[in-house]
Every structure is written in C-alpha cells, then in structure tokens.
Design a binder for these strands. Sequence first.
DNA 1: AATATTTGACCGAC
DNA 2: GTCGGTCAAATATT
Length: 310
Amino acid sequence: MSTMECTWPEKISDDRKRAINELLRGRSFTKQLRSVLVGGHQQASAPDLLEKISRSFTDTLSILSSGEADEVVSQIPASGQLYSPGWDGRRSEESGESGKSSTKDRRGCYKRRKNSQSWIRITPNFHDDSYAWRKYGQKVILNAKHQRSYYRCTHKHDQGCMATKQVQMTEDEPPMYKTTYHGQHSCKSMLKSSQIMLETSTARDSSILLSFESNNEDDSNPFFSSFPLIKQEEEIPSDGQEVTDNNHTKNNNSSSSDYLLSMELTTFESNLGSDHGDVLSGVNSSCTDSTHSLGDMMMDFEDVFIDLEC
DNA sequence: AATATTTGACCGAC
DNA sequence: GTCGGTCAAATATT
C-alpha cells in the first residue's frame, strides 16, 4: 500500500498561505532587528526579536513539512511517536496486529528518502553544528576507508523532528569529515538568544558548505531552520575510525567547529537565485574576522526572504 | 532508572 | 544478488 498518494490541494494552499505569512513576519522581525543592531533603535530587544525570527523559521518549516507529508508534523510534543511519513516515515513496529513470524516484523517499514533535500558539509576535525543528535547506526561503505555514522535528531520522538545527518571521515591525514544533512529541524529552539548572538558573532571555522541539493519546493538550509539547541561534541575514537556524537553540554573547547553562518547565508542566497539544485561548490571560507557581523548577515536574511516570496 | 550507543538484522532500491 | 539506510535489542553510560 503506498502511503504517498494523497495530496490535498486545499490544505497545501492553505499551508502555503500560512508559510508565506510566517515568512513575512520573519522578515518584519528581521528588519526590526536590523534597525536595533545597526541603528541602535530600542523599540524591541534584539534577543526578543531573534527569538521571534527563530520561531518564524521553525513554524514555517513545520508548515511546509506538513504540506509535503500526508499528515501534519506537529510541533506539539506527542506522547507516543509522531512520525511524518513524508520522506522517511515508517511505522514503528506492528500497528495493531503483532507477533508475526519473527520477533519484530518490520516489513514495509522503510521508505527511502528520494526527493528529500540534503546538504553536504566538509569539515576538518569534527563539526559541531550545535544540534542534539542521536546516533542510530553505522555502516561500512563500499570503497570508503571509513565507516559512515548515522544520526537523527534527539527530538525525533518528543517533537517529531525528522532531521538526520550522516558523518563520514573522508581523509585522515588532515582529518576531514563529510557531513550530509537530510531534512530540517522542526524541533523547538531552547537556546537563549544571547547564546545565539555569542555563537554567531564568535564563529570561526574552516568548514565548507559543499553543496545544497534541492529537490523539493519547500527546501531551505537546515542551518536556518532553527537556532542551535544544545552544544554538541563529536569525538574521534582512538583509531580515528568514526565520530561519536554526544548530546551533553560538555564545555566544548573546539571553537573551530562553529560554523560560519554568514557564509552559509550567502551561499544559500546564491543557490536560491540559480535555477538548478545540483551540487554547487567552491565556497570560500576564510572570512573569519568578527567585523563580518550581524549587519551583513541580516542583509542576507532579508534578501533570502525576498527571494522566497516570489 | 533514564538515556545514549553499539551492532546485527531488516528493508527497499538498484 | 548487493548496497546503503534504518530499526531495535543489547549493552554502555550517566
């Protein structure tokens, strides 16, 4: 039985309106924030505005995700499991009748993501993207020296967040890790705005956002979807084979793993402008001085919003 | 006890 | 059949 057949035009168009509405709100907040930061106006506090912007992104993504899926991916914490069967969905265990042949009958469980968006990121050392990840698998990959690790968002169950990532060491001489992100975080941000400011303004990193593949109309960069949740640390086992995530807020001393938000914004924007979603690369990555600050960043934000509108 | 990781099995795609 | 992605029981960690 195929689960992806029903699309509800009315619902989707309604969702689109809501999404556009959310984006407009986000743009408005962004403008306010810019005037606060640049012009020094104090109509509203920057942290408050940042929080609103973050919320706007999250809500928009949630709306768009629900339009793509058969059922709404709610952000309301669910007591049970709340999956979106959209791109990666599966029913967890037997639904109703249990105890078939083997211990757990998982037939029909897996749905390969096909048109899901993905972003590839190459980083030296491990890369801390500040989300809370939970490792759920590790595989040997053909023609690859190292195993690939699979992570899902820690809040998959409590918030229905469907973001996943894969991390694979591609080189070990200068250690290089390729991280592929799938899906977007719909989990709520719980990080304080001040921390966000701190992180973005102190970001310095030599990581490269390699590609931005988009097959769906509701794509957006996962780094936009919401602000970082919990600091995360990945560490390399002694054999250098694979990385392991840790969700705890251990005082992360790897400042090099912060990502350059402004760079990615620019990348995102240029990708939006192009008419294809294939791999784009060659982003240079060495603008690390702190003068490249929120002012510029907000400009990019605004442009992105404008592009999204039409 | 609760939460995270490991790892073999399972599944769909090719 | 192989391969890569995911599940979930067992195990480890906090």
